[in-house]
């Protein structure tokens, strides 16, 4: 971010991060199958970086565990996200990052639905429509500049 540009929302509210998922004895037990649950999906998306701030989507409260719904048997995932301000121009980009992260991290049997929490964004319908359209998502990822920004959001510094 260069010195000249101004951020849309320079001083956003910060929320506390939830801790790491606690390991239970069954997690280590070879014979027990662990189903994919809400927390697991939330863990996938909570660490995505915000395109503007050096903060994660969880810290900005853009994603919350209660807005994640998954059904392992029916192979469906639904994620709602809440932009920090109603006119956030980054909403589509954030939605796209979440979608791409899930596409890369879930088995292909899953049907993935990412949309804006109802009533929290000015152009909610337009963004939802874009995110639901497979071909538009695919086309967006052909655009190397867009892909670059998405990859930066998904980049994890660990290791």
């Amino acid at each position: 971010m260069s010195g000249g540009t101004r951020l849309e929302n320079a001083n956003p509210l910060i929320f506390q991060r939830s801790g790491e998922r606690l390991l239970t004895a069954t997690d280590e037990d070879e014979d027990v199958a662990d189903p994919i649950d809400d927390r697991e999906i939330f863990d996938l998306i909570r660490s995505i970086n915000d395109p503007e701030h050096p903060l994660s989507l969880e810290e900005l409260n853009v994603v919350e565990q209660m807005r994640v719904n998954v059904s392992d048997e029916e192979s469906t995932v639904s994620v709602e996200f809440t932009p920090t301000i109603p006119h956030c121009s980054m909403a589509t980009l954030i939605g796209l990052s979440i979608k791409v992260k899930l596409l890369r991290s879930l088995p292909d049997r899953f049907k993935i639905d990412v949309h804006i929490t109802p009533g929290t964004h000015a152009s909610e319908d337009a963004v939802n429509k874009q995110l639901a359209d497979k071909e538009r998502v695919a086309a967006a990822l052909e655009n190397s500049q867009l892909l670059e920004v998405v990859n930066q959001c998904l980049y994890t510094r660990s290791m």
Partner: peptide
């Protein structure tokens, strides 16, 4: 699965812009 997600995420970034 957690390890696979982390590894696959990194491998997706190879050869991809911004990776």
């Amino acid at each position: 699965r957690n390890e696979a997600v982390a590894a696959r995420g990194q491998w997706f970034l190879i050869g991809s812009p911004g990776g």
